Simulated scan of single mutants.
Amino acid sequence: RSVNRISMGVQTFDDRLLKSIGRRHSAQKAREAVEILRRAGFENLSIDLIFGLPGQTLKDVERDVMEFLQMDLPHLSIYSLQIEPESVFGKQGVHPCDEDLEADMFEWIIRTLKESGYEHYEISSFAKPGRYSQHNLAYWQDRDFFGFGPGASGREQGQRYHIDSRGQRIPEETDGPFEALMMGLRTQFGVDLSSFREKYGWDPGRRYADVIKRYAPHFCEQDGRLFLDENGREILNTILVDMLPEESCE
């Protein structure tokens, strides 16, 4: 029970905000669920939180993180709210959080969790030393994983797929090398260059030499791995756009 991780989508401990984003559970129900799992012997627990919610303040985020710390859980995934045009919020015309406020929120989150002994080992993930999400590491380290049930996604022999409502596997278009770089650079472990060259037949350090030079203060190469420092991971999307072929950016 201490090996397999259970992750719970709490999102926030503020009932007002939970209601505003259409969640059916309450903050108290989330707290009770954590305690039920603990009493049942499950110790390897993680929760998901969201920041940048409509109407959320920095103080709201601080309360959410402090409540997580009081729970003394080994892992936290915390994401900024992304509003896509075809999502419910997008169709409702909900405006995204002010960029400066969102940046302040994330900087406070990183600083507070690191001061509390958590490793910021992936852009949106924090863990007590060594308590990384083994399931998610499969995504980030270019390994295969299985998806089960309608709506799930997986990858087998490098081919991504999703499962439709009839339970059928539907192959998805996959750019394996770029995906491996994108996912690996999200983490503090980066990309294993030897494994990458063996698998894909080319060296990202050479192909993207200009981009690496452009962002030189953030790129590091050590023990055969190419990785970004913490500030570099915060601007990963910008770096990845510069890595895309010109025709992909049109």
Rank of each mutant, 00 (worst) to 15 (best):
P150N: 09
P150M: 09
P150R: 09
P150K: 09
A152K: 09
S153K: 06
S153F: 12
S153V: 15
G154T: 11
G154K: 04
G154M: 06
R155A: 12
R155D: 04
E156M: 13
Q157K: 15
Q159A: 13
Q159C: 11
R160A: 12
Y161N: 09
H162E: 12
H162S: 14
H162F: 15
D164Y: 09
D164V: 10
D164W: 06
D164G: 08
S165G: 14
S165R: 15
R166G: 12
G167L: 13
G167F: 15
Q168Y: 13
R169P: 10
I170V: 15
I170P: 10
P171Q: 11
P171M: 11
P171L: 13
E172G: 10
E172V: 08
E173W: 06
E173N: 07
T174M: 12
T174N: 11
D175E: 14
D175Y: 07
G176V: 06
G176E: 15
G176N: 14
G176S: 15
G176D: 14
P177V: 01
P177S: 04
E179K: 01
E179H: 00
A180C: 11
A180F: 04
L181N: 00
L181W: 00
L181R: 00
L181S: 02
M182S: 03
M182I: 01
M182D: 01
M183C: 09
M183P: 02
M183R: 03
G184F: 02
G184Y: 01
L185G: 06
L185Q: 04
R186N: 05
R186Y: 06
T187M: 07
T187E: 07
T187L: 06
Q188E: 14
Q188S: 15
F189P: 04
G190S: 09
G190K: 06
G190I: 11
V191W: 01
V191P: 00
D192K: 14
D192Y: 10
L193C: 04
S194A: 14
S194Q: 14
S194I: 08
S194G: 08
S195H: 12
S195L: 10
S195C: 08
F196A: 00
F196C: 02
F196E: 00
R197S: 02
R197I: 07
E198R: 07
E198K: 05
K199G: 03
K199A: 05
K199L: 04
K199M: 04
Y200T: 05
Y200Q: 01
G201K: 05
G201S: 07
W202M: 01
D203I: 03
D203A: 02
D203R: 00
P204S: 05
G205W: 00
G205P: 03
G205K: 03
G205Y: 00
G205D: 01
R206K: 13
R207F: 01
R207N: 05
Y208I: 01
Y208Q: 02
A209V: 05
A209I: 04
D210S: 12
D210A: 12
D210E: 11
